[in-house]
Simulated assay, not measured.
Amino acid sequence: MTHQEDAGSDSGPDARPDAGSLLLDDQLCFALYAAQRAVTAAYRPLLDELGLTYPQYLVLLVLWERGEITVKELTEALRLDYGTVSPLLKRLHSAGLVRRERSARDERSVLIAVTGRGEALRERAARVPGALLTATGLGTTEIARLREELWLLAQRAHGAAERPH
Rank of each mutant, 00 (worst) to 15 (best):
R108T: 11
H158N: 10
E5K: 01
A42Q: 12
A120Y: 02
L92K: 08
L23A: 15
R99Y: 14
A154Q: 14
S9F: 08
A38H: 06
R122A: 14
L138D: 05
V128Q: 03
E107V: 13
L153Y: 10
R100I: 04
L150A: 05
S86N: 13
E68T: 08
G83D: 09
L24C: 09
V62Q: 09
D18W: 06
T75S: 00
Q36C: 07
E119C: 05
L24R: 11
Y82D: 08
L146E: 03
I143A: 11
L63I: 07
G67E: 01
L133H: 11
L146Q: 02
R163N: 12
P55Q: 05
E149S: 13
G96D: 05
T115F: 02
H3T: 03
A41D: 14
H93W: 14
Y54P: 04
R117W: 13
R105D: 15
A42S: 14
Q27C: 11
G118S: 00
L88K: 05
R37E: 15
S21K: 04
G139H: 08
I143L: 12
L22I: 08
I69E: 04
R124E: 04
C29V: 15
I143G: 02
L52Q: 06
L58V: 04
P129S: 03
V114A: 08
L153Q: 10
R147G: 10
W151N: 13
L22H: 15
E76N: 14
A135M: 03
P17S: 03
T53R: 08
L133R: 04
L24A: 12
A113G: 02
L46Q: 07
R37H: 15
D18A: 12
M1E: 12
E149C: 11
V110S: 01
Y57W: 06
G8M: 01
Y57N: 09
E149W: 10
H165S: 15
L60T: 01
L24S: 11
V59M: 01
E148W: 12
L47A: 01
E68K: 03
E107N: 10
A95H: 13
L138Q: 05
G116D: 10
E107Y: 10
F30V: 14
L150G: 02
T134M: 12
P55N: 01
A31W: 00
D18I: 05
Q56T: 03
Q36E: 13
L92H: 06
R117C: 11
L60I: 05
A35N: 04
E142H: 00
A31N: 02
L152K: 02
L150D: 02
A41L: 13
A135H: 01
Y82T: 06
H3P: 07
R102F: 02
H3Y: 10
Y43P: 07
Y82K: 09
